[in-house]
Design a protein around this nucleic acid. Structure first.
Lengths: 368, 368
DNA sequence: AATTAAAATGTGGACGTACACAAATGGAAA
DNA sequence: TTTCCATTTGTGTACGTCCACATTTTAATT
């Protein structure tokens, strides 16, 4: 049996202790700790040796308390009128903001319309004019985001990405889901044990210009990878359908047409956005029953549909956590000068009707 | 479109500000904040009004820095030689311990053998003799844990529970999974799309006395709830098998006998502990293929079996997070005097081969 | 009115770090 | 040796809160 671990040391090593041991003043130790220069090589070596040997770690509370420099961050994410999803990310950012407000860090929020790249472009102008110390944003529009990132780089303003990733953008960090894997997982859940010989509906929300969001496109790629790997087309008929953000009746009509064309019954459906609840509404209107439906994100409407059984699985991605972590990452890098990772994948959470309540409550309480 | 949110106030309200506004000294404000008494009703009301109105929230860094009282916590969990599971909980506790070591809080670890209630009893004696400020423990043995909790209560030592819950224990908090729901979920995953007319293996790890652990028993209950609700027995043959912690060859023999008795092929198996990898080993030895296997916890061996496809789903429960949160909860209640919740369920995480890597990495990085 | 105890209120130092500024040191030039 | 400058080193205060202790006010008793 493993032995009991005895009491650890109670008094932690302080800067003054190091100074005493090295025979110098606390100021000199401080200069070494912060690489401020103006220290003779011998003393520097001596102090560094002590720090190393005794594993000095600064008291985070004292440090935070005495750090003077105020920082201004700016966040730029879609507005949260159309869907509740972005509201979660905002909440996460706000939670982090509260937690670190004792650091004298302030975060200004800017928003854009996720279906209108002009609004994104306009917002970036405002952000650039503010000259913040760092920018948090979501590269929903790939090309425009690359241009924005370049402008930030010119002004020496670091940035972090949230929700979706653009590899070519030179940022401090990215937090979000591995879109390909989450699409692959959707396929796995959809086809496992699904009776063969039926049709499956593959739905996409597209913008007015006919293009899906960065994320949606990648998810579909992941889904199709599974389809190819498992040779799904041999056993199932895959039917594509584009839905538009506006014009709800038209969507219903198109769905009806597509379903009508199917030669076999539709037994599965997937949508690569958080609009599952709408898809489910339409399926109900068409009186299609027994369809295994899979969609994204724990919006209240989606959770309701999950509980009634109209949605079989929801794939969630901890948006609040993403917002929270992205801010904490900035803090680590810019204030504490600690290294972090460029790409940080949030887990692919699989939700069913029986576990969704605890999932939501847990995330809720993490934010208290 | 939602309007941009302007810069928030940069300078936060301090105790001295409140004192100035109320026309008193900082000491008086402090007495109100901590309910230390010795304040006239009028001034108290005035100060409280200001605190309320201006939404004063103390600077956590300054607070932590100046709090003097050292605290000694003790953790009492199974030793981690037999299975890696408890090691994760210990890691979580250690992570929290590091994070709060600036609070002058120390945690002493004690261990017991999860298959031997005498070792638990012996350990509790040691813990009681230490007179700690709080105890973290896992009520693996229900009766013995209730007795222990009563003794703690007599000595006015608060406790928190981790991993498994005993409703009747009067503790500050519990962090762990909703065992019934996780068992129910196992059934859901096992039977969804499983070809009817086959047999399903229901495996239990039992202790020398023939009893399963607190958790395992509850999980099985949850599983059986699903079986009853969905009238599973009409379509599947359910076969029970008890495995013993020691005596591996014997287990294989028993498995062989049980499988031999089945009149239909075995197409599913579940085990209510983290010993899936052993079950899989035995299934492989018996050359049973195409069995959908479900088990618990992200132990390296289990993850390996998940990736090779021998295990279909792992149900995980964030043990590190549990250990971490349980310590943080103690901090909140005992140091900051903040209210928390008694029962805190950790989500039921469903892992598949394609998403397990990101899941592990994410949890890993949370601990950095 | 004077004395005393009790209650209310104020004061100042400590926590450990950061950083501005003051002081000391050493070497080169006068 | 003195003067000057550059470099190194030391000192002291601020950050916001907590809490022990000192001081003042109030009320009760003689």
């Amino acid at each position: 049996m493993k032995e009991d671990i005895p009491t650890e040391e109670i008094q932690r090593l302080r800067i003054t202790d190091i100074a005493r041991l090295a025979g110098v003043s606390p100021g000199t130790v401080d200069r070494v700790l912060h690489n401020r220069g103006h220290v003779s090589p011998e003393k520097r070596a001596k102090i560094e040796a002590i720090i190393e040997k005794l594993d000095y770690r600064p008291n985070v509370f004292a440090r935070s308390l005495s750090v003077k420099k105020a920082m201004r961050f700016v966040s730029l994410i879609p507005n949260f009128e159309t869907t509740g999803y972005w509201d979660y990310i905002r909440k996460g950012i706000n939670k982090a903001q509260k937690e670190i407000s004792d650091h004298r860090i302030i975060i200004e929020h800017y928003f854009f319309d996720q279906y209108d790249n002009r609004s994104f472009h306009d917002a970036t102008k405002k952000v650039l004019a503010k000259l913040p110390d760092a920018v948090i944003f979501s590269p929903v529009f790939i090309e425009e985001s690359i241009v924005f990132a370049q402008k930030l780089e010119q002004k020496n303003i670091p940035c972090v990405l949230v929700d979706s990733n653009v590899e070519t953008i030179n940022c401090l960090a990215y937090y979000g889901q591995h879109s390909l894997k989450s699409g692959y997982t959707a396929a796995h859940l959809l086809f496992t044990g699904l009776p063969p010989g039926n049709a499956v509906l593959l739905t996409r929300s597209v913008r007015p210009d006919g293009v899906g969001s960065n994320q949606a496109v990648l998810r579909e790629q992941g889904f199709m990878t599974y389809v190819k790997e498992k040779k799904i087309r041999k056993n199932y008929q895959i039917v594509r359908l584009d839905l538009h953000s506006s014009n709800t009746e038209n969507n219903l009509k198109r769905l009806k047409t597509v379903v009508g064309k199917c030669t076999v019954p539709v037994s599965g459906a997937v949508i690569f956005s958080s609009k599952v609840y709408r898809l489910v509404d339409d399926l109900v209107k068409l009186k299609l029953k027994g369809v295994r439906v899979i969609g994204y994100d724990e919006l209240p409407q989606n959770v309701a549909a999950l509980k009634t059984g109209h949605v079989s699985y929801l794939i969630a991605q901890r948006p609040e956590m993403q917002g929270y972590l992205v801010v904490k990452d900035l803090l680590k890098q810019l204030v504490y000068k600690q290294p972090t990772h460029r790409t940080n994948y949030v887990p692919v959470d699989i939700l069913t009707k029986e576990i969704v309540d605890e999932y939501l409550q847990f995330n809720q309480r993490l934010n208290e």
